[in-house]
């Protein structure tokens, strides 16, 4: 389900079936790495749309955690920690963090949710068909990962 009123109505009705929250982590920077942060944000956004379409009945796709690359790591981890504990309180059994930013990989141990790191691909140089098929492949791998985690959790 997406973070739109139509889907949230469904969420409120079928809450017992929705046990997974996915939070895309979207970096923003205006420094030297501006292009890189845009590519990461774009890639993760496209991926999360596809992912939501496949698993819309069991997960809720949150609007995304946008953060400044220039912010201190402590404050970023603290901020994300607040999200995680809130989601936990709300009863989500599985929390997935979706990112292309390798910075988070270093702090994986401090995060409670499952961190999924995917290297971002240079989508800007691809034509649309090729891009879609590449994204499809990436999503397929993600699907397996999700199904596995769900099966282990049961």
């Amino acid at each position: 389900m997406k973070w739109i009123s139509q889907d949230i109505d469904m969420f409120l009705k079928e809450k017992q079936y929705v046990d997974t929250a996915v939070l895309p982590l979207l970096p923003v920077s205006f420094g030297d790495d501006i292009k890189q942060s845009v590519a990461m944000t774009e890639f993760i956004s496209l991926l999360s749309v596809q992912l939501e379409r496949q698993f819309r009945g069991r997960l809720i796709m949150l609007p995304g955690f946008a953060y400044l690359k220039s912010a201190s790591e402590d404050s970023l981890i603290g901020g994300l920690g607040q999200w995680e504990s809130e989601l936990k309180v709300q009863g989500f059994k599985h929390i997935f963090l979706l990112t292309s930013d390798s910075m988070w990989k270093a702090f994986e141990g401090q995060l409670e949710g499952g961190l999924i790191w995917l290297p971002s691909l240079p989508l800007e140089h691809m034509d649309e068909n090729y891009r879609n098929s590449i994204l499809d492949d990436q999503v397929k791998q993600l699907l397996n990962l999700f199904v596995q985690k769900w099966q282990n959790g049961e």
């Binding site: 079936y17 379409r53 496949q54 698993f55 819309r56 009945g57 069991r58």
Partner: peptide, 8 residues
């Protein structure tokens, strides 16, 4: 599309 909650 699954008739339950719309997964694939």
């Amino acid at each position: 599309v699954c008739k339950h909650l719309g997964c694939v």
